[in-house]
């Protein structure tokens, strides 16, 4: 089972397909879950404290807005953990955790820099593209190691 970073990290479709075809999707939910389930200083709604943008300095310089650095504090460790990635390149309406275009650019760049296998594709807009989309994702995932990684 490989750990596959999904982009958009909030994607239902990618999260489903990665798990369906036997791998572990790494997305925003894992980062948020970790924070929601960890005791500390109360900071609703996401339990992201002002310390997180400071942790984000590892991924982006201080002149980068706090919202980018705070988001990177969630994604940076997941990107480091990822063994592969699937990127939908026209995910223009992914909000919240994916709602900042500058963060999104940095995530995609970081993934491309990391040297892991990456599949880049667009959302399907008809049934034929749906078939191609699923087939491409399946082929990519089938090519990843099944036994390594994981917990």
């Amino acid at each position: 089972m490989a750990k596959v970073f999904i982009y958009p990290a909030t994607s239902l479709i990618l999260s489903d397909l990665v798990a369906r075809f036997g791998h572990k999707p790494l997305g925003a939910a894992l980062g948020i879950r970790e924070r929601i389930q960890t005791a500390g200083v109360d900071s609703p709604p996401l339990q992201i404290t002002p310390e997180e943008p400071k942790r984000g300095l590892k991924y982006a310089a201080v002149e980068v807005p706090s919202g980018v650095r705070g988001r990177m504090a969630i994604y940076g460790p997941l990107i480091e953990e990822a063994e592969a990635a699937i990127i939908v390149t026209d995910a223009d309406l992914a909000f919240g955790c994916m709602g900042c275009a500058r963060t999104d650019e940095l995530i995609v760049f970081s993934l491309r820099q990391s040297g892991i296998p990456i599949l880049e594709l667009k959302y399907p807009s008809n049934e034929e593209e749906g078939v191609q989309f699923v087939a491409a994702v399946k082929k990519f995932l089938d090519g990843l190691p099944k036994e390594e990684g994981g917990a």
Binding site: L12, Y123, S125, E127, V134, A135
Partner: peptide, 14 residues
């Protein structure tokens, strides 16, 4: 959610 029918179609076809 709007795209799920295409994904369903893909899964069925595969």
């Amino acid at each position: 959610f709007r795209l799920l029918r295409y994904i369903s179609r893909g899964l069925e076809e595969l």
